[in-house]
Amino acid sequence: PKDQAKKEIEKALRNGDEEKAKRLAKKYGISDDDWKELKKRVS
């Protein structure tokens, strides 16, 4: 599910692991808009 994916990506971003977050986003098909939203929430 997308919500689970977003949680994992957000966690990776919080850990400062943007490479992992990007890989997860690609793997789960997270859209650019969702990606920006996640980045905003974390920063």
Rank of each mutant, 00 (worst) to 15 (best):
E8F: 06
R41Q: 12
I30P: 00
L13M: 04
E8A: 09
Y28K: 02
P1T: 12
K2C: 14
D3C: 08
K11M: 15
R41G: 09
R23C: 14
G29S: 07
A12C: 08
K6G: 05
E18S: 05
K39C: 06
I30S: 01
V42S: 05
A25H: 02
E18F: 11
A21K: 00
K6P: 03
A5N: 06
P1I: 12
S31C: 04
K36I: 13
I9Y: 01
A12D: 02
A21S: 04
K27Q: 11
K20G: 13
P1W: 12
G29L: 06
K39H: 06
K7D: 10
V42T: 07
K20T: 13
K6A: 09
Y28R: 02
Q4L: 13
K2Y: 15
W35H: 01
E19A: 12
R14L: 08
A25S: 04
S43K: 10
A5V: 11
E10A: 07
E19T: 09
P1R: 11
E8W: 11
S31H: 04
K26I: 14
N15K: 09
D3E: 12
K2A: 12
K39V: 15
K7N: 12
K40G: 07
E37T: 05
E19Y: 09
R41S: 10
K40P: 02
D3P: 06
K26F: 10
K26Q: 11
G16H: 07
Y28A: 05
Q4E: 12
A5T: 04
Y28D: 01
I30Q: 01
D34M: 06
R23G: 07
A5R: 08
D34Y: 04
L13Y: 02
R41A: 14
D34S: 03
S43C: 12
V42R: 03
A21L: 02
W35K: 01
K40N: 14
R41C: 05
A21N: 00
G29T: 04
I30E: 00
G29I: 03
G16Y: 04
A12R: 02
A12L: 15
E8R: 08
S43P: 07
A5M: 10
G29D: 08
K7Q: 12
A25R: 08
K20I: 08
E37F: 05
I30M: 12
K20H: 13
K11A: 15
K22M: 14
D3V: 09
P1Y: 10
L38Q: 01
E10L: 15
K22H: 08
D17L: 08
L38V: 05
W35A: 02
K6F: 15
K20V: 08
A25K: 11
N15D: 15
N15Q: 13
V42H: 05
D17T: 02
E10W: 08
N15T: 09
A21Y: 01
I30Y: 06
P1H: 12
P1M: 12
K11L: 14
A25I: 02
N15V: 09
L38R: 00
P1E: 13
K27L: 14
S31Y: 02
L13D: 00
K22I: 12
R41F: 08
K36R: 12
E37Y: 06
Q4G: 08
I9L: 03
A21Q: 00
L24A: 02
K40E: 15
A12F: 08
S43T: 11
W35Q: 02
K27W: 11
K7G: 07
R14A: 05
W35V: 06
K2D: 13
K11W: 10
W35S: 01
E10C: 07
G16D: 04
S31K: 03
K40D: 15
N15Y: 07
K36F: 13
S31V: 03
D34P: 01
E10D: 03
I9M: 03
Y28L: 05
K27T: 06
D34T: 06
E18T: 08
D17M: 07
I9R: 00
L24C: 02
A21R: 00
K2M: 15
D34E: 15
R14I: 06
K2N: 15
A25W: 03
K20C: 12
L13F: 04
K7P: 03
K36N: 14
L38D: 01
A25T: 02
D17V: 02
K27I: 12
K11Q: 15
K39L: 15
R41M: 14
S43E: 15
R41W: 07
K7V: 11
G16N: 07
K6N: 07
I9E: 00
R14S: 04
L13I: 04
E18H: 08
R14V: 05
A25L: 03
K6L: 15
I30H: 01
E8N: 05
I9G: 00
E18A: 05
K40F: 11
K2S: 14
E10Q: 05
R23T: 11
E8Q: 09
K36A: 14
K7S: 10
K26G: 05
P1N: 13
I9S: 00
Q4T: 10
G29V: 03
E18M: 11
S43R: 10
D33L: 07
L38G: 01
E8T: 04
K2I: 14
K40W: 12
I9D: 00
E18V: 10
D3G: 09
D33M: 07
Q4D: 12
R23P: 00
G29P: 01
Y28H: 06
K2G: 13
R14C: 11
E8I: 08
A12S: 04
L13Q: 01
A5F: 12
E19M: 10
D3N: 09
Y28N: 04
D34C: 11
S31A: 04
E37P: 01
L13V: 02
K27D: 06
K6H: 13
W35C: 03
K22A: 09
K27F: 14
G16M: 04
I30T: 02
D32K: 07
L24G: 00
R14K: 07
E19D: 11
S31Q: 04
L38P: 01
K40C: 15
D34K: 03
K7C: 13
A5H: 13
K11C: 08
D34V: 07
V42I: 12
L13G: 00
E8K: 06
D32W: 14
D32T: 06
